[in-house]
Amino acid sequence: MKISEIKNILGAELICGEEFLENEVSTACGSDMMSDVLAYVKEQAVLLSGLVNPQVVRTAEMMDMKCIVFVRGKRPDIDMIDLAEQREIVLLGTKLEMFTACGLLYKNGLKGGSGI
């Protein structure tokens, strides 16, 4: 799935990273706990989170993730956006709740880390 499709499915707003919207991703995870993302996530390319602080971008950076979707209408600040731009990570924002956002992406073909 292209990141642009994720944007469309979630009715999400593009915050930064327009040039990477056509990149392909196949897996995602949803978590507000960065420790868990670092512990259990393997090859996921998309992180959905309701947590908003620079460590969300850092965590995605360490895990080689390509896109972060902020759920529940959360908005990153300018420092986070700068950091994501430097690290070439797409930031999207949706008003949907975590469960709904994950469910819609799963229904449309995005998988979890175990490929299920």
Binding site: M33, S35, A39, Q55
Partner: peptide
């Protein structure tokens, strides 16, 4: 509240 402190830090480092 910042997404850490789940008691996974040191086990993760070992992992």
């Amino acid at each position: 509240q910042l997404g850490f402190g789940a008691g996974m830090g040191l086990p993760n480092i070992k992992k």
